[in-house]
């Protein structure tokens, strides 16, 4: 027996509301500070746990031990990707955007980032490299990397 059968159905009033706060300020964390410093230097960090290398860097390892932060170097490859046609409000983008899961040989995990590549040319296994913002604009955030781009054949 459902509710509406027993109750008089009335016109339901709706009240507008919002959930907001002035702002959140997130601390970067123990590993996060080092990762941020490295990004400003144009470096990407991972964490070494015993014989394994994990990306992204974290303070602790899967077995809960403390990991060792190390720089990871490319070449980065596309492990999976998606092509985005709409923004978060469902509006059509002027130009589709490629978002990819990027990894490196011998490491577990990876990074999610934009890839500046023609959606028709993107494929799993494509080699890419990070393109950083100019040094003075870097803030130690993942967006210090503007995007990844295919490695030029030379």
């Amino acid at each position: 027996m459902s509710l509406w059968k027993k109750s008089r159905v009335v016109d339901v009033i709706h009240v507008e509301g919002r959930m907001e706060t002035e702002k959140y300020v997130y601390t970067p964390g123990l590993a996060g500070v080092k990762v941020a410093e490295a990004l400003i230097e144009g470096k990407i960090m991972g964490v070494r746990c015993g014989g394994e290398l994990y990306i992204p860097a974290k303070t602790y390892c899967p077995d809960h031990s403390e990991g060792e932060l190390v720089e990871v170097r490319g070449p980065w490859v596309i492990k999976s990707y998606t092509i985005v046609y709409e923004d978060m409000y469902g509006e059509k983008l002027d130009k589709p955007v490629v978002v990819a899961l990027l990894g490196i040989e011998g490491a577990r995990g990876g990074l999610i980032h934009y890839v500046d590549v023609d959606p028709d040319k993107v494929r799993i296994g494509l080699k890419v490299e990070p393109v950083f913002k100019p040094r003075e604009e870097r803030r130690g955030l993942i967006t210090d990397i503007m995007f990844f781009k295919p490695v030029e054949h030379s």
């Binding site: 339901v12 009033i13 709706h14 009240v15 507008e16 509301g17 919002r18 959930m19 907001e20 706060t21 002035e22 702002k23 959140y24 300020v25 997130y26 601390t27 970067p28 996060g32 500070v33 990762v35 941020a36 410093e37 990004l39 400003i40 803030r139 130690g140 955030l141």
Partner: peptide, 17 residues
Amino acid sequence: LPGVIEYKPVARYSYSA
């Protein structure tokens, strides 16, 4: 500190009475 993130969330709702 480097890597500090600031974010302002605003979620709009229409609460049913």
